[in-house]
């Protein structure tokens, strides 16, 4: 067992929000109980239809997406998705996104009375209007984090956007606001152009870049944040294998999230879990905690 900000995980691998739905589709491929946890599709107070298509575009070693937080709303999540997920022995992390303090506060109260294990505060979705504002302003972020923390008794994680000058500033703001941990990175804002039509490929013009191409940026940011805050860091960004995950853990992540890789291979999370174990066996490491932040600079 590993403890990440009060959340007890059976292993350090969590399925990342927005790439895993509510687990239903992946439950046809493996027992979701094998996962440390699942961060569910980003929830909003009311249902959302999301953006127009095309919503995806392949890039070298990754993808750009602009789904726009299509989701059934927090009430429907509580009513139908939590009971489904509770069939499996894994932790449920509710990823929530809002446009106002009130949106976040109401969702925190609803989820405090619901059977979830943690909240991941999504203040970094680049694909909705105003979505990133909270995540880019340290003062606002601290205030929002405190406000949600006051209304939710279980662990609270803040998901950080890389689209800032200093991710350490926003990480510190989350810590000051009472977050139990930070998760990073969300997607990098990007654009792809169809040169024959001279228009963006994505209907929403811009989208979030993810996949192996962002991994070095993510590893660097995880390490920077790890050195500057005292709360646990959840690392993500282009993880496809156990080796990738170990890289994040050495950089300072207490656990990792696997996202875009789920699109290419529905068994990606399982392969990462097995890969971490193989590495530990090979390197004769008994406890993954020994690895966290064990990086030594040249």
């Amino acid at each position: 067992m590993i403890n990440v900000g009060g959340l007890e995980l059976k292993n350090p691998v969590i399925a990342a929000s927005g790439t895993f739905g509510f687990g239903r589709e992946f439950s046809e491929y493996y027992d979701l109980g094998r996962l440390g946890g699942i961060s569910v599709k980003g929830l909003t107070l009311e249902p959302r239809m999301g953006n127009k298509t095309p919503r995806i575009c392949e890039t070298p070693s990754g993808i750009l997406n602009s789904v726009g937080l299509q989701n059934p709303g927090v009430h429907e999540f509580v009513r139908t998705e939590i009971p489904f997920l509770r069939q499996f022995d894994t932790k449920i992390i509710a990823n929530i996104a809002g446009n106002s303090f009130s949106d976040y506060e109401q969702m925190a109260e609803i989820l405090n009375d619901a059977d979830v294990d943690a909240i991941e505060l999504n203040v970094s979705c680049p694909n909705v209007k105003d979505g990133v504002v909270f995540g880019q302003d340290p003062q606002l972020l601290e205030k929002l984090t405190r406000s949600v923390k006051d209304r939710f008794e279980k662990p609270l994680f803040v998901k950080l956007t890389p689209n800032v000058t200093s991710i350490v500033d926003t990480a510190k703001a989350a810590e000051a606001g009472g977050a139990d941990g930070v998760s990073l990175i969300n997607t990098l804002l990007g654009m792809a152009i169809d040169i024959y039509r001279r228009r963006p490929v994505l209907a929403n013009n811009t989208g979030g870049l993810s996949g192996p191409c962002v991994k070095p940026v993510a590893v660097r940011m995880v390490h920077e944040v790890y050195r500057n805050v005292n709360i646990p860091v959840i690392g993500m960004g282009g993880i496809e294998t156990g080796e990738d995950a170990v890289e994040f853990i050495i950089a300072g992540a207490s656990c990792v999230m696997v996202g875009t890789a789920n699109f290419a291979d529905p068994l990606a999370c399982i392969k990462v879990i097995d890969g971490i174990e193989e590495y530990m066996e090979k390197m004769k490491i008994k406890d993954v905690r020994e690895l966290v932040g064990s990086l030594e600079f040249n």
Binding site: G18, T19, F20, G21, R24, E25, F26, E28, Y29, K41, M49, G50, T53, P54, R55, I56, C57, I63, N65, V67, Q70, N262, F263, P266
Partner: peptide, 30 residues
């Protein structure tokens, strides 16, 4: 439609349909 995961999780390949007079997004893949 352009697809991501192909199994219904990523919500990338949606199309709008009208069922029983309600507009909704359906996943082309699933």
């Amino acid at each position: 439609e352009r697809m991501g995961c192909g199994i219904g999780a990523c919500l990338v390949c949606v199309c709008e349909v009208k069922k029983e007079n309600v507009l909704q997004n359906k996943r082309v893949c699933k």
